[in-house]
């Protein structure tokens, strides 16, 4: 497997020989990689190759499904997050997630953003106000909603809703931000805003984005991981992990090249 070894102090998340099962079904097999701090890593590959599974392993939301099991080690800052005693709730505070379809709560913009911090113990109104403003600014949404903070989030446009969801993920001050096809339901202008946002956010976060848009992966990411199911029923594997310019100009693996140039199947 083609992969990159980073310096220990550069690594935020590390998978060591990770396999994952839904019941008896092995969804991913022996996946190893490192995600560098303050960088954007894109996950690409055909549907069903386990990209979302890998994302959900990072914040342990996979355990919500029944009968799942994991082999191998998943480390954040060098600590195995699957070790006994590791609290998944605290972990999810450190690892934020944004989904394909914007999913704001049917409440006001303000409530959407204040909820997370409230759950995590922030009570003072002024402090909540600050968090709301700061996260909206980071998500490049502040100017558009600052006069309407009590408007229902459902009334925002799709692109605004998605930025609201990003802002919501930021309110809990995560260290890692996982984005599962965050632009697939958005128009080109909203997509561009999210891409600019990703670029601006990477100085503070370690970001992973799953995308089916090759050009988007090429534009926004520093590193790209290509996953593939080699035959039906087989688990997904990591085929190549390289810096993004290499993946898109001279991938090491022929399968990667076939996929990104549309020569698949």
């Amino acid at each position: 497997m083609e992969t990159i070894q980073f310096k220990p102090e550069e690594v935020k998340v590390e998978f060591k020989n990770v396999s994952f099962y839904y019941g008896k079904f092995k969804a991913i097999d022996n996946v190893s990689f490192q995600l560098p701090k303050n960088r954007v890593t894109a996950f690409i590959g055909p549907s069903g190759c386990g990209k979302s599974t890998v994302l959900r392993i990072i914040n342990r939301t996979n355990e919500i499904a029944l009968n799942t099991s994991l082999e191998g080690e998943v480390l954040i800052d060098g600590v195995n997050i699957y070790e006994n005693g590791h609290d998944p709730v605290l972990l999810r505070k450190r690892v934020g997630m944004v989904f394909q379809k914007p999913n704001p709560f049917p409440k006001s913009v303000y409530e959407n953003l204040a909820l997370g911090p409230k759950i995590h113990g922030v009570k003072k109104k002024s402090e909540l106000d600050d968090i709301v403003e700061e996260s909206l600014k980071k998500a490049a949404l502040w100017d558009e909603v600052k006069n309407n903070l009590h408007k229902s989030a459902i009334q925002l446009s799709g692109g605004q809703q998605q930025r609201l969801c990003i802002a919501r993920a930021l309110t809990i001050k995560p260290e890692v931000l996982l984005m599962d096809e965050p632009c697939s339901a958005l128009d080109p202008i909203s997509t561009q805003k999210i891409e600019d946002l990703i670029d601006a956010l990477k100085k503070d976060y370690t970001i992973v984005i799953v995308t089916h848009n090759m050009q988007q992966a090429a534009r926004v990411s520093d590193y790209t991981a290509f996953f593939l199911v080699e035959e039906t029923g087989a688990p997904g594997r990591l085929v190549e992990f390289s810096d993004t310019p290499t993946i898109f100009t001279r991938p090491a693996n022929k399968k990667t090249e076939d996929y990104i140039t549309g020569r698949f199947g």
Binding site: M214, Q215, A218, T249, R250, P251, E257, I260, T261
Partner: peptide, 9 residues
């Protein structure tokens, strides 16, 4: 077409 990899080359 925004070609990549061998196509771009």
């Amino acid at each position: 077409q925004q070609p990549v990899a061998r196509d771009l080359r």
